[in-house]
Computed example of a mutant assay.
Amino acid sequence: MRYFLEIAYDGTRYHGWQTQPNAHTVQEVLDDCLSKVLRHPISSVGSGRTDTGVHASQQFVHFDVPEPLDVAQACYRFNRLLPADIVARQLYRVPDDAHTRFDAFARTYHYRITLAKDPFQRYYAYYLSRQPHVQQMNEAALALLRHTDFTTFSKVKGDTRHYNCSIYEAAWEQEGDQLRFTIRANRFLRGMVRLVVGTLLDVGKGKLTVAQFEEAIASQDRSRASGAAPAEGLYLAQVEYPADLFSKAAGDL
Rank of each mutant, 00 (worst) to 15 (best):
Y241T: 07
F246H: 07
A243C: 02
S226A: 15
A250P: 08
A229R: 03
A249L: 00
G233Q: 07
S226F: 05
A249S: 13
A229F: 02
F246K: 12
Q238K: 15
A249V: 04
E240L: 14
I217H: 04
E240H: 13
D221A: 09
P230C: 05
D244I: 05
A218C: 04
S219M: 03
A243R: 15
Q238P: 04
A231K: 07
A225G: 13
S223L: 12
S219G: 11
K248R: 14
A216E: 03
V239F: 09
S223P: 09
L236M: 14
E232A: 10
A229W: 01
D221C: 10
V239L: 09
Q238T: 04
A237P: 04
A228H: 07
A231R: 02
F246C: 04
L245V: 05
S247R: 11
A229M: 06
G233T: 00
A229Q: 02
A250E: 13
I217R: 07
Q220F: 03
K248V: 00
K248Q: 14
V239R: 14
E240R: 13
I217Q: 04
D221P: 15
A229S: 14
S223H: 12
G251E: 10
E240I: 00
L245C: 13
E240T: 01
I217K: 06
A243S: 12
R222E: 06
A231N: 10
G251I: 00
A231H: 08
G233N: 10
R224E: 09
A218P: 12
A225K: 05
S247H: 08
F246R: 09
P230H: 02
E232L: 10
P242C: 03
A249G: 12
G233R: 13
V239D: 05
D244E: 13
F246E: 06
G227M: 05
Q238I: 01
P230L: 07
G251C: 05
E240P: 06
E232P: 07
Q220C: 15
S226E: 02
R222N: 14
D221T: 06
A216R: 10
A243N: 01
D221E: 14
I217V: 09
A249C: 01
Y241S: 11
Q220D: 08
L245R: 02
S219V: 03
A249D: 09
G227E: 10
I217D: 06
G227I: 00
G233H: 04
Y235H: 14
Y235K: 14
L245T: 07
E232M: 14
A218F: 10
P242D: 07
R222P: 12
S226W: 02
A237G: 02
S219Q: 02
A237W: 09
A249P: 10
F246W: 01
D221S: 12
L236Q: 09
Y241N: 06
R222L: 04
G251N: 11
F246V: 01
A243M: 03
V239I: 10
A231S: 15
Y235V: 08
P230R: 08
A218D: 06
D221L: 05
Y241M: 01
F246G: 03
G227Q: 12
P242A: 04
E232C: 15
A243E: 13
A225E: 05
A231T: 05
L234R: 13
V239S: 13
S219C: 11
Q238D: 12
A250V: 00
D221H: 12
R224D: 03
S219A: 15
L236I: 03
D244N: 06
K248N: 01
E240C: 11
G251F: 11
S226G: 15
P230F: 11
